[in-house]
Design a binder for these strands. Structure first.
Lengths: 164, 164
DNA sequence: CAGAAGTTTCAGGTATAACTGAAACATGAG
DNA sequence: CTCATGTTTCAGTTATACCTGAAACTTCTG
């Protein structure tokens, strides 16, 4: 029995791993992704091998092929997974990008830009005698606009240094 | 005609203001709030006076009393509006907290804590011979854990200085 | 204390996003 | 070219979050 894979230790490994995958999914769901997308991300965090086919994923997570296909496309679009078509392999493989957590920082840039838009548009419509509400938003945005580039730089430096 | 309020300039002010409110709502909707909650936040950004009753809000945004009540409670729970019961006034008033944008930073702390949980739990279930995926998450979290307190300090300093 | 004004609660209706399963489509192997 | 494997698309189902409207409840005022 246990003829293939599961090269690891025992049986209950699976159970805790499933739990972890669900935990990751819950996290990303709060972040606006679908539960299925979160499951995929969680699975790709701990699966072995790290490269998985759509079929692998669908089976491991008990999702339909359609779901997996759709979610993978979306996740690829936002840079949270990478598709790799190996020559000589029928099926494409999917895995987390090495620099996924760096890529996610780009969403911060978008957030800041979005707030900038709100601040500017708000100035035009706010009661002229009351600049305070828009003003405090504007200040917060200004802070991040000036700090963020340097912060990003520090992150990259930190990650580089930390490589052991 | 135009018997009360609308002490401002002209008629088309309203139209652009409505648009702005919707814009704000769209922003917050992406952030996980409901559309109605976003509308309320948008309205409170530009309404005059800044303090509004539930009835004011419901009328301005064409929402039911029930909706407004529910959303205000939720928004108050996460610190994005403040309720003020003025003595001698029947109705409570609601407005944006002065330091709303500072309060929002607390959600960042929660995000970091959430990722720390994932990193630690992940270490326990990841294939032992492959610490890389969890490791890169761990590094990112470590960065923020060490940087965030100082960043918060700088924000507060910046906002204080910027007061004109 | 009685009634009005303000607020909350909640059952029901509605809209919508997510997932499935099957069919269409694409791609590589023989 | 033909078949098998892999992937995408999409109509239909299901689940769920949102909003409404009305009734219950609370809190002020006269």
């Amino acid at each position: 029995m246990s003829d293939r894979a599961d090269a690891g230790a025992g049986h209950s490994e699976d159970a805790t791993r499933v739990k972890y995958v669900a935990q990751v999914a819950a996290y990303w769901e709060r972040g606006g992704l679908t539960y299925a997308a979160g499951l995929i991300l969680g699975h790709l965090m701990v699966c072995e091998p790290a490269d998985q086919t759509q079929a692998d994923i669908a089976e491991a997570l008990d999702l339909s092929a359609g779901s997996v296909s759709t979610q993978l496309r979306q996740l690829e679009a936002i840079g949270m997974i990478e598709r790799f078509r190996a020559p000589g392999q029928r099926a494409a493989r999917y895995h987390l990008p090495q620099d996924m957590w760096l890529k996610i920082l780009n969403t911060e840039r978008d957030r800041i830009a979005g707030l900038r838009t709100l601040a500017d548009a708000g100035r035009a419509v706010a009661p002229t005698e009351r600049p305070d509400r828009i003003g405090s938003l504007d200040k917060m945005v200004s802070f991040w606009e000036s700090e963020w580039p340097e912060t990003e730089r520090r992150i990259q430096e930190f990650l580089r240094k930390e490589r052991s």
